[in-house]
Design a protein around this nucleic acid. Sequence first.
DNA 1: ACCGTTCCTGACGTTGACGTAAGATGGCGA
DNA 2: TCGCCATCTTACGTCAACGTCAGGAACGGT
Lengths: 176, 176
Amino acid sequence: MGPAATGAGALASEALLRIGEAALRLGVSERALRYYEEIGLVVPAHHSPGGNRRYGEAELARVRRIRELQDLMGLNLDEIRTVLDREDRLEDLRARWHASDDDAERREVLGEVLAVTAPLREQVERKRRRLEAFLGELDERMAHYRDLLGELDGPPPSLSAARTRAGRRPSPADRS
Amino acid sequence: MGPAATGAGALASEALLRIGEAALRLGVSERALRYYEEIGLVVPAHHSPGGNRRYGEAELARVRRIRELQDLMGLNLDEIRTVLDREDRLEDLRARWHASDDDAERREVLGEVLAVTAPLREQVERKRRRLEAFLGELDERMAHYRDLLGELDGPPPSLSAARTRAGRRPSPADRS
DNA sequence: ACCGTTCCTGACGTTGACGTAAGATGGCGA
DNA sequence: TCGCCATCTTACGTCAACGTCAGGAACGGT
């Protein structure tokens, strides 16, 4: 590898972004980014001596993740924090993994990560199921309406003729 | 109409619930129900002369719908209102459908309903897709971790050589 | 060194969706 | 008719997740 094993962590020359650029690229407000830092959710890769925030790719990804969890799962920032904490812990693990020669420790950490990821997966899965049911319901309705429309546009001769004549009121037993 | 052509609308003896019971069954607060009425989202089937609210099955369903749209789609009450308005309009249609002898009107209303339902469906579908992608991502991670765990518990012969660079192995059979 | 742009830190404002408390009825079994 | 719990209206409180100034430094190109 080169001069520095640029693994997962931010390193050296990574072209850090100022808050304006970062916000622009992420499509979020600067205020939001400052807020995330305020509550310890996204800490900039670096602060300039003058106090300016500098964001690296890792932080951008983190923010994207936050937005995804907000939009997709409807989690609040506190719930999101726990999710991100898990993922952080996971990154720790990745590092420790190669540094450690203790398989017992590895097993332990892996188990923890799995135990902590599974509930999230379940939550997502439940939501997916409900969404799918909802979608099916919508499709069913739409199909029904399309059928009705079809009947009007391409009317079965007998049916249409029987009905359209003489402003007749609908047959008593016709619920759909 | 007969004595009571109990079609879609609430009618006659439907065992209306007082707000307490309704809230209890729905798992929402009384305040929420009053609030929904305040903003014209769910109007009780009836108010007693004294001013007490009475809820019928239709209103309960409506509230359930609201909660579903909140939880599942993350819509706010204003967006939900437009959705419910559409569905109301649809109920109107159902009534008018049988009362009207004007196919043109029917076509028009059906078209409108479809045109207005489709976007919602699309929105739901998009969300479903994103959720599925997210789920896939989670599964991928978990599978990876499980692989690692498997390697530890049942170490393959060429351990050190295989692990160094391997991100993943497509080999499916790895369960103990 | 200059200067326009960008960012900083407070600190108060906003919005949605209710929560909560107070005091005044309403409904209804005994 | 009494008593009592459920409801009513009114109105202020709350909480998250930022929005929006104001006044003052930091950056960075020239």
